[in-house]
């Protein structure tokens, strides 16, 4: 084996050691970062009000019904969806 190849193999060994250490160190730091983000989000939860939730609340306020009640439009939509689903599964 030539001296040049020995030198290259040594360099590759250094690259392997440094490279894997840095990859692991970086990604372990990132694990810490993700845990910190999760902690931050638990500590300061945002009011994530989706348009659906807003509409639902508005509907509840107007109708003043119990939270479990479903509006006729929603019930009709669910019925139509179930009907279509059953038809397609029967076909297939």
């Amino acid at each position: 084996m030539s001296t040049q190849m020995n030198d290259q193999l040594l360099e590759a060994g250094v690259l392997l050691a440094v490279g894997m250490s840095v990859v692991f160190a970086f990604l372990i730091l990132l694990i810490g970062g993700i845990h910190t983000i999760a902690w931050f989000c638990r500590k300061f939860p945002s009011d994530e009000i989706t348009p659906y939730a807003t509409q639902n609340r508005a509907a509840q306020n107007i109708n003043n019904k119990s939270p479990t009640s479903v509006s006729p439009q929603v019930a009709a939509a669910i019925t139509a969806a179930v009907h279509t689903h059953r038809q397609t599964t029967l076909k297939s």
């Binding site: 590759a12 392997l16 490279g19 894997m20 990859v23 692991f24 372990i28 990132l30 694990i31 993700i34």
Partner: peptide, 13 residues
Amino acid sequence: LLLGAAAQFGIFA
């Protein structure tokens, strides 16, 4: 992420 890191061993090897 540790699995993503371990799989990079193929590159350096």
